[in-house]
Write a protein that binds this DNA or RNA. Structure first.
Length: 113
DNA sequence: GTCATGACAAAGA
DNA sequence: TTCTTTGCCATGA
């Protein structure tokens, strides 16, 4: 196809959109669910293209393994990410999610098979 | 076709 | 414990 074939990106967007409100996940968890597993970078890379994804992708629910809002700087505006997370009931302090484990949502487990 | 970069993650010192 | 290094796969030039 001459048109883009971002099948990998599309998969990432699908999973991210499945994240329940008030929950968060990590790049590695998504990558693992997609099968890329070891390459969490690809997930973050896909997020970089999420600006062109429709409908929009709740990337603010995706953080790194440490629960840190590493990609907040890529938002528009960056502060919006924390705003959205707090709005959904998630506490964010110093760009870090409090009780990250409690809000953690693993697609490979929650969605199971 | 090869080199360099990237919103990460796990292992080693 | 924190800091540093390596691996990972895909995209862009």
């Amino acid at each position: 196809m001459s048109a883009q074939d971002p099948h990998f990106f599309d998969l990432v967007y699908q999973v991210v959109r499945l994240i329940p409100k008030g929950r968060v996940t990590s790049y590695g968890a998504i990558g693992k669910y997609l099968g890329t597993g070891k390459s969490a970078r690809m997930v973050g890379w896909a997020m970089n293209a999420c600006h062109n994804a429709k409908p929009k992708v709740p990337a603010h629910r995706v953080v790194n393994r440490n629960g840190l809002l590493t990609g907040k700087a890529h938002f528009n505006p960056p502060e919006k990410m924390q705003q959205l997370l707090e709005k959904e009931g998630i506490t964010v302090k110093n760009d870090q999610i409090i009780n990250f484990e409690k809000h953690f949502w693993d697609p490979a487990k929650e969605l199971e098979w």
